[in-house]
């Protein structure tokens, strides 16, 4: 039996070695590339789109934010080398994509300007575009934190539903989010407080594993997960400027 199939046993910890899921997919040829591209689009479209809306990036090129991000993915991911370049960049995948999006917007603006017979851009383009992105780092990190948590929740709930254990998500939610005592939840599900505590704990571990998987695909090491989670909490709590 695998560790995750037993609801009362927390899943094993991730190993410390960095095993980049996307690198493995890219080594599998066309089919792997499609999987990797699919994962990137599914996981990053929302935070990038929210980011575009919040900082007005889409308005610069007069495109809807979702359309802009989908256009960016279509343009960049059609190049099989794009994700391979990320692997050697030393950046987190989210930062790589955000920078790429800024470059893509700059390209669109340049195209539009050329069509109108104007000239934009010039020297030190990289620095200009990257500093533009860095200035809005907080907005993006905030959108990313929520998106990653959303994805982890979705994955956990789907896994529980597959095993007909949706009730355990409700127990976890009631206790950890709504603050209902275990004993009270137990009355609803005809379980003892200890049984509810065990199930809620196991779901918490499963959610943690799901988030770990997402963060590792983004390029984090297994040993950095707690630090990553704390920085996600901080970015959510920071003052609105």
């Amino acid at each position: 039996m695998s560790a995750t199939s037993d609801p009362l046993t927390p899943s094993r910890s991730f190993p410390e070695t960095q095993t980049v899921w996307i690198a493995d997919r890219l080594s599998e040829g066309e089919a792997g590339l499609m999987l990797a591209n699919g994962y990137v689009m599914e996981s990053y479209v929302r935070p990038l789109s929210i980011y575009c809306s919040k900082i007005g990036l889409a308005r610069m090129v007069r495109i809807d934010a979702d359309d802009l991000v989908h256009g960016f993915f279509a343009n960049r991911l059609s190049n099989s080398e794009y994700l391979k370049s990320w692997l050697t960049s030393g950046l987190r995948l989210r930062q790589w994509l955000r920078n790429g999006l800024h470059f893509y917007v700059h390209e669109l603006r340049r195209q539009n300007a050329t069509q109108l017979g104007l000239h934009i851009g010039g020297q030190a383009l990289s620095e200009e575009v990257l500093s533009e992105g860095a200035a809005h780092d907080h907005e993006f990190e905030r959108a990313w934190a929520l998106a990653a948590l959303d994805l982890a929740m979705k994955e956990t709930k789907e896994e529980l539903e597959t095993r007909n254990r949706r009730d355990e998500w409700e127990m976890f939610w009631s206790h950890h989010v709504e603050g209902v005592p275990h004993a009270k939840i137990g009355e609803r599900f005809q379980l003892s407080a200890a049984q509810v505590a065990q199930r809620a704990f196991a779901v918490g571990a499963q959610l943690r594993d799901a988030l770990c998987g997402i963060l590792r695909k983004d390029g984090a090491l297994g040993s950095e997960i707690d630090v990553e989670v704390r920085s996600m909490m901080e970015v959510l709590n920071e003052l609105r400027s």
């Binding site: 934190a145 929520l146 948590l149 929740m153 976890f172 950890h176 989010v177 918490g204 959610l207 943690r208 988030l211 989670v229 996600m232 909490m233 959510l236 709590n237």
Partner: peptide, 8 residues
């Protein structure tokens, strides 16, 4: 989100 992160 804050509560979920605490649970994690």
């Amino acid at each position: 989100a804050m509560r979920l992160f605490c649970a994690i």
